[in-house]
Nucleic acid binder design. Structure first.
Lengths: 240, 240
DNA sequence: CGTCGGGTTGAGGGTGATCAAAGTTTGTGG
DNA sequence: CCACAAACTTTGATCACCCTCAACCCGACG
């Protein structure tokens, strides 16, 4: 698979990409690497000189408090460039870590700056991607700030499911989610013990099947309702 | 005061602005308005055709859950353009509301698009501002997700104080913060009752004076420590 | 002078944390 | 392919932080 394929798919959701754009993106000098699970791609305080285009696997952004508690800020799936902000913000203010074994393409900042200069519409498309990131952060704030544990989990699952589906990474109501319950706890601002209890509650009510990191959401409407999930904030149809 | 003055001050923090840039910005067609406290500037679901440059006062972005709970996502001070994302994301995914009587300049999207096209460096500077917004959202997630009530409040006060100071809106350790304890509760994901108790706790320990919406932070080092506040994420010196 | 929004105080309750331990799966090396 | 260790999941008991409900106070403002 071309490393740029998921990216192109994602950009096309929100931007009309023409043949020249595609060529310019495919001409980017990308270094593809396989990365083991639980590896740090970029660390808080670093000054990256490249961006990371996720091609396969799952990565997350996170911060760790002085007390040693981790908070996951976002989950990223293939097609995402989770450190795109480093093009304009020179110091990482959080960590970027793989959750599963992943494949990523690394693109030098130089090349991306040149791309945005030559093809301003791609520049705007990339800007838009970072703005959608910000929109997801906003919803994430609501999730940890104002929802009960069970709603938080329902919302997280609905969001990831929706994003997977749009990227063609879900088969029906089923997708792979290589996160441990510890990871989920860090995403939701809960403890792993309580996540476990909530997972069981969702299972018991027939809203979730979860086995060996494969998720299936048999009753999506009820799950979305429980998680108050409305995909408006994902801005998946920004054209026009 | 020129409506663009706080904006220019803010942009200069992160971008070298030349005389032509200043002229281009000052030539923007801006409609200045006074807005009463607790008025909605833009509502979730709307499709704005202009951006709001805050000149005086305090506004916030917020979402309201199905259960009617409000979560404040960010606090904005003069110089901010809190709906700058609407340039690229056409539908508002949250509300924008004044917390105090405010003065704002409204700038048509057309004019801003033209500006970013003619002066790409300003375009990048605006992109950068939205990325700093995103960085603040990330820290906000950590605040509501992983910190105790008292740390959350300490962090919020330290953040706003720092931003006020940089914009020349603080006199020493003192600044105006026209938020009720209800607003603060909605920012921190707490109830007003509990915010009140935590405010008193901060007062008792000599970390906070708060009277008639004037805040003073007599022991900033201890406050920052309590709130785990490190201003890295504000990216206030992005030059080079 | 009365009303209203906001601040303060108190009592009781519940969601989710903490602590601890047992069970299960995963991964690794022999 | 098995043995073992490590990581993760599950369960139970107890605890605490923060919520809920309710009442009262206070100052601003009509």
């Amino acid at each position: 698979m071309q490393a740029t394929e998921p990216l192109l798919r994602k950009l096309r959701l929100s931007t009309p990409i023409d043949a020249d754009d595609v060529r310019a993106i495919e001409r980017l000098p990308i270094t593809v690497k396989d990365i083991p699970a639980h590896s740090i791609i970029a660390r808080e305080g670093e000054r990256p000189v490249q961006c990371c285009l996720l091609v396969e696997g799952i990565v997350c952004r996170s911060k760790t408090t002085d007390a040693g508690k981790r908070q996951i800020l976002s989950i990223h799936i293939p097609g995402d460039i989770p450190d795109l902000q480093s093009l304009q913000l020179h110091v990482m203010d959080h960590d970027l870590t793989t959750l599963s074994r992943s494949t990523a393409g690394f693109i030098p900042h130089d090349a991306l700056h040149a791309l945005t200069r030559e093809r301003p519409l791609i520049g705007e498309a990339l800007w838009r991607e970072t703005l959608i990131d910000a929109a997801m952060f906003r919803e994430w704030i609501v999730n940890v700030g104002r929802r009960s544990a069970i709603s938080r989990l329902a919302h997280l699952l609905a969001e990831i499911g929706r994003r997977m589906q749009v990227m063609g990474l879900a088969a029906g109501d089923r997708f792979e989610l290589p996160m441990t319950q510890i990871d989920i706890a860090d995403a939701l601002g809960l403890t792993p013990v309580h996540v476990n209890r909530v997972v069981q509650e969702l299972r018991r009510t027939g809203l979730l099947e979860l086995h060996k990191h494969v998720v299936s959401l048999p009753d999506l409407p009820r799950l979305k309702e429980l998680g108050e999930f409305d995909d408006l904030y994902l801005h998946q149809s920004e054209i026009a």
